[in-house]
Nucleic acid binder design. Structure first.
Length: 723
DNA sequence: TACTATTTAATTTTT
DNA sequence: TTAAATAGTA
């Protein structure tokens, strides 16, 4: 066996990981250290060298994108299509198991997957049904509660209310939610995982089958596993399975949605004798960028400990720019982008990263004015668009008449005279008789409703029946096409004024194309329609399906994880924004913010700019803030402060501190005051400088006093003490 | 039922 | 500020 192609391109640590014997292995892979490469080569090694059958391998990732990439690269490396290879997301694989064993999982064969938008609607409906006072609970809060409990693997009966009436009610809402889902054959994302876990846990035979089949479990982004995902893995591995997990404790940034870095420690306890391999050589960034990242993350107490290094170039110093406000910040970034582009670089090789999405606005305005094409990540994806979800709801109702979620969505869309009153009657009938809305509609239409309402309901029901009949046996795309037109959605959106309606109709057309290019997997025992609907729920599609265009990439640092760019800007590096106000007080929260910072810094390959604004408009209010503490954690020798006007860069002294950029541009600077400066006044007490104007004897400052409110004071009279 | 005024709250995101 | 959700009005 020639192992050259598999091992040749690897460094020692990578090779050690890839050729690890059939024992539990934990690979701690720093940013840019070839994590995916190790996974891909491990798979190839197992199949090609160890003679493991491709069917004996299970590879799990968190995103569809990562799964697709892994499959692609394994195929390329082995130079043959790896069919029957189970590579997918946790949810995708759980879904696959549930479809195969729907009876054992106590699900209807045609169960539907609901996304978080469907979920929140369902919960709101539940509130109405149970007459829950929504001033007591926000539906969002209950959604969080349910998902968090499911992520931890808990059913309502597992939760101890500890005598807390508030908690007791949440638990009861969770229980009611479950009932509604079970009745409608609806499964939310967390439920996929939870059910898949219970399926294996409670079916010794099935568990035995999968344990025998999947000896080798490859796991990507292990630090992001939540409790139920980890439990599922452990169950599947059993005593003889060989888990091979890859992760980076320093890049764990999803604690808030249930991810637990602790699993990295737990893994070593659960699988005694685990081999640990650390990948610390980085192939992405310059030494300067790496050293900065290392220095920042070193401030975290709870780490396994690792230090990235490179044998590459030192690189340019990190440039820090202290902007007046967010406009100035944006201008600065755009100026540098212009230089970059003028030097013949690709726009797509640059990225602007920020902590929260709201920050993109000002940057976008600037980019539009400058005529620089850009792309913002995040936002609604294709299958999440309203019109698409409407069309899918019709299809889902055809597939499963008991899907209340879809029923309510489209029963009166387009409007067909089925108003809130009628729907209320259906709801209460459905509740009283523990049946679906569809059955309730049929029942009350023949008994309780007046003529007009009954007609409307009957017309709706026969429309759905007609759709089901007429599309029976049609090809998927013809089905979709037929339903879109019969439903009246196209006409409905035509009435929308402006471009909005047009776009929506275009999107509906796009849905037909999506159905056309969708190839059902014959191995799945599902109807093509069910499979398409599951696909739509599990893989929400791209944000923008636009053709490739060379443009600047704008995204949050969260969405930047896993990506890399030669030129990176991190904007809004201010205490309160990053680290975010809501995480600052909690040490765990702060450490997670710091890991996010580490992720942000390590996205940069060649050049990194960090900017912060002294004044920033947030929620319509002007705020003053200090530069992020994370900036001060970067050793000064790696930083160069960028000063505007005077085009001179000057290394900083002992620690980073913001300074006014030029005397002429900052009124009052000669008095030693600056925006955000804390001051004390004899009469008014303590306050913060909001504004200054004028020079010399005329210089005035606006001070927001804690007790006395906001006042303009002439500096030469006020006798302010700087604090 | 659709449009308009008012209120409210405001990280991060995948499946 | 602004977007979304709710309440009120035509």
């Amino acid at each position: 066996m020639d192992v050259t192609p598999i091992l040749d391109s690897l460094n020692d640590a990578q090779r050690q990981a890839v050729t690890s014997p059939a024992e539990p292995t934990l690979v701690i892979a720093g940013a840019g250290s070839g994590k995916t490469r190790v996974l891909v080569h491990r798979a190839a090694w197992l199949i090609d060298v160890e003679g493991v059958s491709p069917q004996g391998l299970l590879a799990v990732t968190f995103t569809n994108k990562a799964a697709a990439e892994m499959r692609h690269r394994i195929e390329a490396l082995l130079n043959l299509p790896v069919q029957h290879l189970w590579i997918g997301t946790f949810h995708g694989l759980a879904h696959r198991m549930l479809r195969r064993h729907w009876r054992e999982a106590n699900l209807p064969q045609n169960f539907q997957i609901i996304d978080s938008d469907d979920q929140i609607r369902l919960i709101k409906r539940l509130f109405k049904n149970l007459e829950v006072d929504d001033s007591q609970f926000a539906p969002k809060e209950i959604q969080w509660f349910i998902n968090a409990e499911k992520d931890e693997g808990r059913r309502p009966q597992h939760i101890d209310d500890g005598g807390d009436p508030n908690l007791r009610q949440k638990i009861s809402l969770y229980a009611s939610y479950e009932e509604v889902c079970q009745r409608g054959g609806l499964v939310d994302f967390a439920e996929l995982l939870l059910r898949a876990h219970e399926l294996l846990r409670d079916n010794a035979e099935l568990l035995g089958h999968y344990r025998r089949r999947f000896k080798h479990l490859l796991v990507d982004e292990f630090q992001d596993t939540n409790a139920i995902q980890y439990a599922w893995l452990r169950l599947l591995a059993g005593a003889d399975g060989v888990p091979f997990v890859v992760g980076d404790d320093d890049q764990s940034i999803y604690r808030w949605r249930g991810a637990r870095v602790e699993h990295i420690h737990q893994f070593q306890r659960d699988f005694p004798g685990t081999r640990v391999v650390k990948l610390e050589q980085n192939y992405r960034s310059t030494a300067t960028i790496l050293n900065a990242a290392n220095a920042v993350i070193a401030n975290n107490a709870s780490r396994l400990g690792k230090n990235l290094w490179t044998d590459g170039a030192e690189g340019e110093a990190i440039r820090v720019y202290s902007a007046y406000n967010e406009r100035d910040e944006s201008d600065f970034v755009i100026g540098r982008l212009r230089d970059w582009i003028d030097h013949g670089n690709l726009r797509a090789d640059s990225a602007i990263l920020y902590r929260s999405n709201a920050q993109s606005r000002v940057l976008e305005e600037g980019l539009i004015n400058a005529g620089i094409p850009y792309r913002v990540y995040g936002g609604l994806r294709f299958f999440e668009r309203m019109e698409i979800k409407d069309a899918l709801a019709y299809l889902r109702l055809i597939a499963n008449r008991d899907d209340d979620s879809s029923f309510e969505r489209i029963v009166n869309k387009p409007t067909r005279g089925i108003g809130a009153r009628t729907i209320d009657m259906m709801r209460s009938y459905a509740r009283a008789n523990a049946c679906s809305l569809w059955r309730a509609a049929g029942a009350i239409a023949s008994d309780d409703l007046n003529g007009r309402a009954a007609n409307a309901v009957n017309a709706f029901m026969s429309l759905i029946e007609r759709m089901a009949r007429e599309t029976d046996g049609l090809e998927l795309q013809d089905k979709v096409d037929h339903v879109i037109h019969l439903s009246g959605l196209v006409d409905f959106f035509k009435k929308d004024k402006g471009e909005k309606g047009e776009t929506r109709i275009e999107n509906l057309g796009e849905l037909v194309s999506a159905a056309k290019s969708f190839t059902p997997d014959p191995a799945e025992e599902m109807s093509p329609l069910d499979e398409f609907l599951s696909h739509a729920a599990l893989e929400a599609g791209e944000g923008q399906a636009d053709a490739w265009e060379d443009c600047v990439q704008l995204m949050t640092m969260h969405s930047a994880k896993g990506l890399e760019f030669p030129l990176v800007f991190i904007c809004g590096m201010e205490d309160g924004l990053f680290p975010h106000q809501r995480s600052i007080a909690d040490p765990n929260g702060l450490e997670e913010e710091r890991r996010l910072c580490y992720v942000g810094i390590t996205r940069a390959k060649e050049m990194l700019y960090i900017t912060h604004a002294e004044q920033r408009r947030l929620h319509g209010m002007d705020n003053f803030s200090q530069p992020s503490r994370f900036i001060a954690e970067i050793p000064v020798e790696h930083i160069e402060e960028v000063r505007p006007r005077v085009q001179v860069t000057r290394p900083m002294h002992t620690s980073y501190s913001p300074r006014r950029k030029s005397a002429a541009a900052s009124p009052g600077s000669e008095m030693g005051v600056r925006l955000g400066q804390r001051v004390r006044h004899k009469k008014f007490g303590d306050g913060v400088i909001l504004n200054c104007e004028g020079q010399g004897a005329h210089a005035r400052v606006e001070v927001n006093f804690e007790t006395a409110g906001t006042k303009w004071l002439v500096l030469s009279y006020a006798n302010l003490d700087l604090m």
